[in-house]
């Protein structure tokens, strides 16, 4: 049985449906990310789990018990907010101790647990600091310690890293993952950053316009996107309009001057998706012209004008000679590196 279960959850504000038909089963100790652009309903879903919003339809169950019937203060979930929402008039230790105080944990045990929690997030010795005298990263750590010290059944993270600079965000991602692995708390992260979702989670829930587009491991969602939205949102991708002709045998998949044996199933107009890093330059393939060539240290980024529309190609900087701007090239990829969907490319 799933640990946390969302069953066809929906939320309406007036006539507007923000979340619809959201079903998800989360296993104990799993790290799940809700990924999507702003306004896709991911934060609304998180707030329904937290209890700050009531679902219009559907059920949320924790270990089989109906969670929506429990007051948010009694749900025992740990939440880290985007703004951290630390209590500015309390020190770091007082902030962390607040949840324990509300649970009537005896003073001596409280002090011990606060010290352990702060040490776990690397803030030993900062007990008496006030939040306004701490950096963004340190405040973030206090917020995390405050949420974890109450030993929550589920940890909810609402875009916790979005206010940090790039370098610090990367450090915190690694640390967050390590802490989560160590203590094994079931965690749900809301984010619009695909890198963050991919590097942290066991499974990603890709959302768009209040609906789930795909649920899968980071690798699954990246390699085999279920929809055009997922392939566009998770990293860069190239969509080429192609057709599958089954009138003659063997059936062929054709895009411009490029043609391969067709995969089973589909026919008529289709979309071929290929990731930029999976495209190479060869002798046979889609004909294209290099428009711009950008050097980015460990890789080259090419913007090409192909016979089937614009294309992006990423090549590792492996010391090989690369084509220059204006040069005519052929774009090639292995059949297993593309995904083919029914319908014409948008």
């Amino acid at each position: 049985m799933a640990y946390l279960e969302l069953d066809r959850v929906a939320k309406q504000f007036g006539a507007m449906t923000v979340v619809d038909g959201f079903s998800l089963a989360v296993g104990k100790g799993e790290f799940i990310s809700f990924l999507g652009p702003s306004g896709c309903g991911k934060t609304t879903t998180l707030q329904m789990i937290a209890g700050f919003l009531d679902p219009t339809r559907g059920a949320i169950r924790l270990e089989g018990k109906d969670l929506t019937a429990i007051h948010p203060a009694k749900r025992g979930l740990g939440i880290v907010f985007q703004s951290y929402a630390l209590f500015p008039h309390m020190t770091a230790a007082e902030n962390v101790a607040f949840g324990l105080e509300m649970r009537n944990v005896p003073r001596s045990e409280r002090a011990e647990r606060v010290r352990t929690a702060l040490a776990m997030v690397g803030l030993a010795g900062y007990e008496d600091r006030h939040p306004r005298r701490m950096s963004g990263g340190q405040q973030q750590r206090v917020a995390l310690a405050r949420a974890l010290v109450i030993k929550p059944s589920v940890l909810l993270l609402d875009e916790p890293l979005s206010n940090l600079d790039a370098k610090l965000r990367e450090e915190m991602q690694i640390e967050l993952r390590q802490i989560q692995r160590t203590i094994g708390t079931t965690t749900i992260l809301v984010t619009h950053d695909q890198n963050e979702a991919m590097s942290l989670s066991d499974r990603i829930v890709v959302m768009s316009q209040g609906r789930i587009e795909q649920i899968g491991t980071p690798q699954e969602t990246y390699e085999r996107p279920a929809s055009a939205f997922v392939s566009q949102f998770l990293g860069k991708t190239n969509d080429f309009a192609a057709t599958i002709d089954r009138t003659s045998a063997p059936a062929r998949l054709t895009a411009g001057s490029w043609s391969v044996p067709a995969p089973a199933g589909l026919s008529g107009p289709v979309t071929v998706s290929v990731r930029p890093e999976r495209i190479g330059f060869g002798d046979v393939g889609l004909s294209a012209k290099i428009v711009t060539r950008i050097f980015q240290g460990n890789h080259w980024l090419f913007q090409c004008d192909s016979e089937c529309g614009p294309a992006i190609v990423i090549r590792q900087n492996d010391g090989q000679a690369q084509p220059s701007e204006g040069e005519a090239v052929r774009l090639v990829w292995r059949p297993e590196d593309m995904s083919v969907r029914a319908g014409a490319a948008a």
Binding site: P72, A73, K74, G78, A85, H89, F98, M102
Partner: peptide, 27 residues
Amino acid sequence: LDPQIENAAMSLGAGPVTIVRRIVMPQ
């Protein structure tokens, strides 16, 4: 006041009276 601060206190188990007394009033 951080608009999330009352939710933060609530998620840690504080009731409405405690939130006003311990979190809102001091600020």
